[in-house]
């Protein structure tokens, strides 16, 4: 079979859209014609390459440019992009790096001046010192507890004394003063007849008063 007749069938043959008879004819021809076999191979390889052709991505700046030219609104940034824009990018500027270095140095200097040295701090954490510290702490706590207990007892005693004293005073006062009870008729003392001379009467009053 002639190559010029087979060539138009090669693409449908690739797509398996030829009839059984046509497919058989193509296959027979390909066995005998090296040129057509090479052509088919190239077509297949080009087709495979087309399928694996890289898909190009739109650059974010380009996308933004289009949006600004159409709707006038900048594109929505993802959380990651926002973090990069507002946090990471400023962090990576030389100005910020210099500032961070200076701040770290200043902080280190402050710590060095204000805090005990590291070796002291480490020795302070040794087990015997720790135990001693715990022991003295416990003793201080116990003595404080005792003081509080004694103080409480003292206060309790003072309160009891004051309470009893007040009650006694009140009782005494109640005994002295007769409080009139409502509804009870007071007994009238019999009027003494005046007798004797004015001197006698006066002396009587004086005696009564005494």
């Amino acid at each position: 079979m002639d190559c010029s007749k087979i060539e138009p069938w090669l693409s449908p043959y690739m797509d398996s859209s030829l009839s059984a008879d046509e497919t058989r004819q193509v296959e027979l021809h390909l066995k005998s014609c090296r040129q057509c076999a090479e052509l088919l191979e190239e077509m297949q390889s080009a087709s495979a390459l087309c399928r694996s052709f890289p898909t190009l991505e739109l650059e974010p700046d380009f996308l933004e440019k289009i949006l600004l030219r159409t709707s006038g609104r900048p594109r929505t940034r993802s959380f990651r992009e926002r973090i990069q824009k507002y946090f990471l990018r400023p962090l990576l500027t030389p100005r910020f790096a210099a500032g961070a270095v200076l701040a770290t140095l200043f902080l280190a200097l402050c710590i060095n001046l204000m805090m005990p040295t590291l070796s002291n701090a480490v020795s302070f954490l040794s087990p015997p010192k720790m135990l001693r510290l715990m022991d003295s702490g416990a003793q201080r706590l116990y003595s404080q507890g005792l003081k509080v207990y004694n103080k409480t007892n003292e206060l309790q005693e003072e309160f009891n004394f004051l309470k009893n004293d007040t009650l006694n005073k009140m009782r005494f006062f109640m005994e002295k003063v007769q409080v009139p009870v409502e509804g009870r008729k007071e007994k009238k003392e019999p009027v003494r007849e005046k007798s004797g001379t004015p001197e006698e009467q006066r002396s009587h009053i004086w005696l009564w008063k005494a």
């Binding site: 138009p8 090669l10 693409s11 449908p12 052509l39 088919l40 190239e42 077509m43 080009a46 087709s47």
Partner: peptide, 11 residues
């Protein structure tokens, strides 16, 4: 079909 054939020949 023609496009594929032409492309293969060119390549």
């Amino acid at each position: 079909n023609r496009g594929r054939l032409e492309l293969a020949k060119v390549l």
